[in-house]
């Protein structure tokens, strides 16, 4: 991590005024993304992982109150005008959503939309060149017979193909950063495996960095270099993928890992769920927000919110827990499976 970060988020806080009160969706989140790396943001519903991404893309509604700073490639995104921001969206930062139909227009052909995505940022590219590039993009994402498929409308594509088309659109302008929000959650496993390969290829072809937002710890294990775990709008733990899976120093991360059944393990043991449910962002518990569900909680956890602390000199591994050093060792290791 000697390179200059591509994206640098500092003390990001996002809240919404609602009829039920102030919703504190993201609370003091700071992190960096380096060129070419894949960072996974993991959390359950309401953890603030999607809102963090939407804030980075400046896609939140005007009602959102945002503070902190988001520096991308040396520019402060939060102070840009809408016009300047639009130039960055889709050109330097592109997004992949869970539902491809949110990004594809049903009344234009896929080829039209890809060409449009290119020409809007590069008006000097001829229509013919843009259309050739569209076919090339469909080929990169593994759509068979791209020359024919480019003339199709989104509804003529299957779910997996639409997801590929959206990835093609996201990489159309060689973005420096891809933000993928639950990109494979709506897909079947065999199609999910195809789409993950496509994302890997797309990232390779463009050298883009990626923020992968997901709740799927299996997906993260295979693709991310670094992981950050969010809970109740805060970062709870961050580290290299191996560190988080094999040497986690946070009770929430450990609980999350323990509660997933894995088909790769022969087990008649009961699962060890985390008791209770994720907290409501309207009414976060005092002190550590995980305290009501935490088996290690002490009085101090109610009185004082723990800070996100570095656990090694370089600060690569950080955990938000008063007892990070004293926690029992935990490792998410499974036996070998048939493949």
């Amino acid at each position: 991590m000697t390179t200059e970060p591509l994206l640098s988020v500092r003390d990001l806080t996002v809240s919404f005024d609602t009829d039920d009160g102030l919703v504190q969706a993201v609370n003091g989140v700071s992190f960096d993304v380096h060129p070419g790396e894949t960072l996974a943001v993991v959390g359950e519903s309401g953890s603030g992982k999607s809102v963090t991404a939407m804030a980075t893309m400046r896609l939140l509604p005007r009602s959102a109150r945002i503070s902190g700073s988001i520096t991308f490639d040396g520019r402060d995104l939060l102070s840009l005008s809408d016009r300047e921001m639009r130039r960055i969206q889709g050109e330097d930062i592109a997004m992949i959503f869970q539902d491809p139909m949110t990004a594809l227009n049903p009344v234009f052909t896929v080829g039209n939309q890809l060409a449009e995505a290119i020409r809007i940022h590069h008006p000097d590219v001829s229509k013919k060149a843009a259309s050739e590039r569209s076919i090339e993009l469909l080929e990169i994402v593994g759509i068979p017979e791209p020359r024919i498929r480019v003339e199709n409308y989104p509804h003529e594509f299957s779910g997996g193909m639409r997801q590929r088309a959206m990835i093609a659109m996201a990489i159309a302008n060689q973005p420096k950063l891809l933000i993928a929000d639950e990109p494979t959650t709506a897909l079947d496993v065999t199609i999910q495996a195809q789409v993950i390969e496509v994302m890997r290829k797309a990232q390779e072809a463009t050298g883009a960095a990626m923020i992968l937002i997901t709740h799927d710890l299996g997906l993260v294990a295979g693709v991310a270099e670094r992981v950050q775990v969010m809970y109740g709008g805060r970062l709870f733990e961050t580290g290299d993928t191996g560190t988080i899976y094999y040497r986690s120093r946070n009770p929430y991360t450990q609980g999350l890992m323990r509660s997933i059944p894995t088909f790769a393990k022969r087990t008649d043991e009961r699962l060890s769920p985390i008791p209770g449910s994720p907290p409501s962002a309207i009414n976060l518990p005092a002190g550590c927000s995980f305290r009501p569900r935490c088996e290690f909680a002490e009085a101090i956890c109610r009185d004082e919110e723990p800070a996100l602390r570095p656990l090694d000199p370089a600060g690569a591994h950080q955990s938000r827990c008063h007892f990070a050093e004293e926690l029992p060792d935990f490792s998410q290791r499974t036996a070998e499976v048939a493949g």
């Binding site: 199609i191 390969e197 294990a221 295979g222 191996g242 499974t334 499976v337």
Partner: peptide, 28 residues
């Protein structure tokens, strides 16, 4: 069944990165 099992990602980075998975061609 083989392909289905090999497509499911496993929450264990070392294992996930060392195993070979078969990617089925085409859609359902």
């Amino acid at each position: 069944t083989h392909s289905l099992l090999s497509a499911v990602p496993v929450a264990d980075p070392e294992m996930e990165r060392s195993r070979e998975r078969i990617i089925l061609e085409g859609d359902l």
